[in-house]
Nucleic acid binder design. Structure first.
Length: 461
DNA sequence: AGCATAATAT
DNA sequence: CATATTATGC
């Protein structure tokens, strides 16, 4: 088929090709494709739907509903949904429910715009988080982050190819195919467009909700409000007031959320050395064992894990959680929460919890995140810092503090690979330290250096 | 509601 | 191929 097409198509070749795979059909149709000879676009059922398509069927909870609040609440707290279709997709739905004003026409327009690709960055409106699904592979422009505007907009994004139907604002994407997603941003091609029009209920594929920081923010907020005990999917869902979100979605996220909390927080507590208790303990517990952490200076041995911004701490102030404030560099994504730690080409700093504590004034990070509140501390800053260190080392001669910082960082995040330039402590030194601290009986299985270093060494390969 | 696990995306 | 994230099943 492709070939055929190409032949007919002629010139644009290169691009078109890419597009094809990527997007699959989406774009072609709209205008030029009109020809019709072409791609029937198998996947998308384009049924026009004229009125509502209730999806019914599979979607049970989510989909249909909608309405209800929509405009009503406006930002204040419920973020209704502005629809952030970042990619161009989705708009239709949006308008369905969305604002009354000029929908139709504007929409159309938008689509077009989006098509050409301009839109995103410039627009303030939300293209926000689209985390470009597309970019991943191509590496196109990682930086396109558009600043998403904090306020409005909360609907979850979902990926779905045509997505569509749902009235949910949540954006979902689903690209069936891995790469397609063109997204808006970079891809020059005009792809996108149309998309929705066809919506279809039929496409009951699965769309994944993507928990953007905004969504997560809401989520956290809800959880906080409810309190641990009450934080239950259904309640959270209610509080969040995000259309399109289902209880399951929330439940799933909650699961993850809790997990993190458990893993991260607890660490701090347990973190204290395993008291020699009884030898009985086995290692069926992968948790952060005794990481090699000779307390060089047991004194200020890093108060581990103060607050981890990302997943919001128990008591934490909502405020700290969402702070996108920081400007420039990062794409919305990483942000403090490192929320979407998933991917970003430029940085992977997984940042699983950054130890964030009020960094000492002289802290090297200060420069990076001056006013960042406690939770602040962007990964990027840290990462860069760390990475750069080795290089500069010679020239610059890092202050001890810097080194210290790095070390602390490494220590506090044993699950991360050691930064360049750092090596895990030798078994001997570790054992020595342990004994110094009165922990003389080390279980045999720990004798093995591997065990001591575990995670970290394993990582790199 | 929660947990375990499948599915899937990167 | 490994990992991370979300969906699903029980």
């Amino acid at each position: 088929m492709l070939h055929l097409k190409l032949e007919k198509e002629e010139p644009n070749t290169t691009i078109s090709i890419e597009v094809e795979n990527l997007s699959g059909n989406k774009e072609n149709n709209h205008e030029q494709s009109a020809g019709s000879d072409k791609y029937p676009a198998p996947s998308t059922p384009q049924l026009k739907q004229g009125a509502r398509l209730l999806d019914d069927g599979d979607c049970q909870d989510q989909t249909n509903c909608s309405t209800e609040k929509e405009n009503g609440e406006q930002d204040g707290e419920s973020k209704s949904v502005e629809t952030t279709y970042g990619d161009s997709v989705a708009e239709e739905d949006t308008l369905l429910i969305g604002e009354p004003e000029m929908q139709a026409k504007s929409i159309v327009k938008e689509e077009e715009d989006s098509v050409d690709g301009s839109k995103n960055e410039s627009e303030s409106h939300m293209s926000p988080h689209l985390h470009n699904d597309d970019s991943p592979n191509n590496a196109i422009s990682p930086h396109l982050h558009n600043v998403d505007c904090p306020n409005n907009v909360i609907s979850p994004h979902l990926h779905n190819d045509d997505n569509s139907n749902n009235v949910m604002f949540p954006q979902l994407h689903n690209d069936d195919s891995p790469n397609n997603v063109i997204g808006g941003a970079n891809q020059p091609s005009k792809a996108s467009a149309l998309t929705n029009s066809s919506m279809s209920k039929s496409n009951r594929k699965k769309m994944k909700v993507d928990w953007t920081s905004e969504l997560h923010k809401k989520f956290v907020h809800a959880v906080e409000q409810l309190g641990v005990d009450q934080a239950i999917p259904s309640r959270i869902l209610e509080l969040m007031k995000v259309e399109g979100l289902t209880r399951h979605n929330v439940a799933s996220h909650l699961q993850k959320y809790r997990m993190h909390k458990r893993h991260i927080l607890p660490k701090e507590e347990d973190r204290r050395w395993p008291r020699p208790r009884d030898p009985v303990q086995k290692n069926y517990y992968p948790h952060q064992p005794i990481m090699a952490y000779p307390s060089y200076h047991s004194n200020h041995a890093v108060p581990v894990a103060p607050v981890y911004s990302m997943w919001g701490q128990p008591g934490n102030h909502p405020a700290s959680v969402h702070m996108w404030g920081s400007p420039a560099y990062h794409t919305p994504w990483q942000s403090a929460e490192s929320w979407q730690w998933k991917s970003f080409p430029g940085m992977h700093a997984d940042a699983w919890g950054c130890p964030v504590m009020p960094p000492p004034p002289h802290s090297p990070y200060a420069s990076y995140a001056p006013q960042v509140n406690v939770s602040g501390f962007h990964n990027t800053g840290a990462v860069n810092n760390v990475c750069s260190m080795p290089q500069n080392t010679f020239d610059v001669q890092p202050a001890e503090e810097v080194i210290d910082k790095v070390v602390k960082e490494a220590i506090s995040k044993p699950w991360l690979p050691l930064p360049l330039g750092l090596k895990p402590p030798s078994t001997d030194s570790v054992l020595y330290e342990l004994s110094r601290q009165g922990i003389s009986n080390i279980p045999p299985h720990l004798g093995n250096s591997d065990s001591l270093c575990h995670g970290r060494t394993l990582h790199h390969d």
